[in-house]
Design a binder for these strands. Structure first.
Length: 518
RNA sequence: CGGGGCGUAGCGUAGCCCGGUAUCGCGCCUGCUUUGGGAGCAGGAGGUCGCCGGUUCGAAUCCGGCCGCCCCGACCA
């Protein structure tokens, strides 16, 4: 089928070279190679769409599970609203149309006939959801409504990147309706905090939270808050958003309720979402020149066991031993009902070293090597994907050679030891990512000239004063490609907050964080 | 939509200027020897050279048209 000829990834020097393009050499080529070769995703026959492969989807499933538990714990329930939305719905909220009309995919035909009214494939579901809420709400007693849905959405983007920006992507969108503005604001901020904790604790990806400026907020929202992460090329990735929608959609869809005092009032709404884009963030936060590194909590496979044998007799013995170790780990109850997720690489005809490289590329946090000598001593060799020592670093090695980063662990009590190491990896990854972000954040007094040089060079996050004028924001974007990522929440602000606007020298209205962004 | 580049095996490519049905590497399959950091040797499978048309005895190669993809500029989780 000639139509499939464009499926070739646009990547140079991939197959004839076992090594990845390095991050320093070409960060975006590196990213594409990691995503493809770690088998997270592949290109689809349709431009801008992607297939999420089992290893990528496995990460998504773990993200879903952790988030879904949190949504449920905070009183939300899942529902599902349809993919197709009447085009007229999109038009009912002025800012919303403006924001999404250009990137809407529209269905004009069905059943072989032209439709009376075109249907839009949801770019987001505010319109259909609040129109339904309007049917379900009569009284303040019906509020709040706390709904979440896991769904796919379509936005006809011009330039696409695997996971970061595709025409179709998977996400979760929460939609709530409340009696008061303040209650909606509390919900918006609660979810923002929930996202932040998820990104730190599960993704090991530090984020700063804050308020979006008017030009960067969601079309149709009163206020948008976001989580912003720093990738290894020092660009910002907006990893999650939480919106206080005010009464904009309530008014558009007549979502009214009778209040305690008997009058009719419009409900106050929030919406919030995170998407498969987070997987791209994970790759660009933790990956190295050997490939992917997945934090244990999100890794579909936490431990890979590579048995080593020479003869057939040894092979049988080692495979049995490997499976016994796997059994001990998967059935371990030390962290509740979920055992440790283990894979035994029993493939023949591939040397152990080749397997090591492959599992490192694919990001498995911990590798366990099991050979005849280990069996003899009732132990195994363990290596951390993040390259850190297991236990304290050896003080010195004779001959000045680099000390081995593998450690010998006894097979007795192995699950506990492995679990401890996984926990350490998880926290070390967060600490490393946090240190990297801080090392590339600039809180020193900054002139606009210095800022421009910085944005032409290494980039990073720049904390600076802003007079609050959208025209200045636009000018900086025009001149440097950097945008205001957010007006940071209190805990992220500088101790000595800038008092003047970086560009005009006028009194600063806010301290803001500037960066180039994905 | 403007500017640039490219479509040859699963992937990366040579050949194209100077027409004679296709090169090499990686991967894949089989066998033997290997297996504690990317194995070696031998054999093998796999391509209507993006599509349509033209020139020609003959087109991957020359000519025309079309399609698609990638990169750079105006939008975005």
């Amino acid at each position: 089928m000639p139509a499939l000829c464009h499926l070739k990834p646009a990547i140079s020097r991939m197959s004839d070279d076992k090594k990845l393009t390095s991050r320093a050499e070409d960060f975006s080529a590196w990213y594409n190679e990691v995503v493809l070769r770690a088998q997270l995703a592949d290109y689809s026959p349709v431009r801008g769409c992607m297939v999420i492969r089992p290893d990528g989807y496995g990460i998504w499933e773990r993200m879903q599970r952790a988030l879904d538990d949190q949504f449920k714990a905070t009183g939300h329930r899942n529902a599902y609203f349809p993919l197709l939305i009447p085009e007229s719905f999109l038009r009912k909220e002025a800012e919303h149309v403006e924001g999404f009309a250009p990137e809407a995919a529209v269905v004009t035909h069905g059943g072989g006939k032209k439709l009376d009214e075109p249907l839009v494939i949801r770019p987001t579901s505010e319109t259909i959801i609040y129109s339904m809420f309007a049917k379900w709400v009569q009284s303040y007693r019906d509020l709040p409504i706390l709904i979440n849905q896991w769904a796919n959405v379509v936005r006809w983007e011009m330039r696409t990147r695997l996971f970061l920006r595709t025409l179709e992507f998977l996400w979760q969108e929460g939609h709530t309706a409340h009696v008061t503005h303040d209650e909606a604001e509390v919900e918006t901020l609660m979810i923002l905090g929930l996202y932040r904790r998820f990104m730190e604790e599960h993704m090991a990806m530090p984020v700063l939270t804050g308020l979006k400026t008017h030009s960067e907020k969601f079309a149709g929202a009163l206020r948008t808050y976001s989580c912003e992460a720093m990738m290894q090329d020092n660009k910002a990735l907006q990893a999650g958003t939480s919106h206080n929608l005010g009464q904009n959609f309530s008014r558009a869809f007549e979502l009214q309720f009778q209040s305690e005092s008997g009058g009719m009032e419009f409900a106050w709404n929030t919406s919030w979402g995170v998407s498969t884009r987070m997987i791209g963030g994970l790759v660009m936060t933790h990956g190295d020149d050997n490939g992917l590194r997945i934090p244990p909590k999100l890794a579909p496979t936490e431990v890979v066991i590579v048995p080593i044998w020479k003869s057939d007799e040894e092979r049988a013995r080692l495979l049995e031993a490997a499976n016994n170790v796997k059994q001990a780990l998967t059935s371990w109850t030390g962290r509740g009902h979920d055992g440790i997720r283990v894979h035994v690489d029993a493939r023949e005809g591939i040397k152990p070293g080749a397997k090591y490289y492959e599992w490192e590329l694919r990001g498995v946090p911990l590798r366990l090597e099991l050979g005849p000598r280990d069996l003899q001593s009732n132990s195994c060799m363990v290596a951390r994907r993040d390259g850190n020592f297991i236990g304290p670093a050896p003080a010195e090695v004779p001959g000045g050679k680099a000390p081995s980063r593998k450690a010998v662990l006894s097979l007795d009590g192995l699950p506990t030891a492995i679990n401890d190491i996984l926990t350490t990896i998880q926290s070390d990854m967060l600490a490393a990512a946090l240190a990297r972000r801080e090392a590339n954040s600039h809180r020193e007094p900054m002139t606009y000239d210095t800022f421009r040089e910085l944005m032409e060079g290494d980039g990073g996050f720049v904390y600076a004063g802003w007079n609050g004028d959208p025209a200045i924001e636009a000018k900086v974007k025009e001149e440097t490609k950097a945008t205001i990522r957010c007006i940071p929440d209190a805990e992220f602000r500088s101790k000595d907050a800038p008092t003047t606007c970086m560009v005009t020298g006028e009194p600063a209205k806010h301290e803001v964080v500037w960066a180039k962004a994905y």
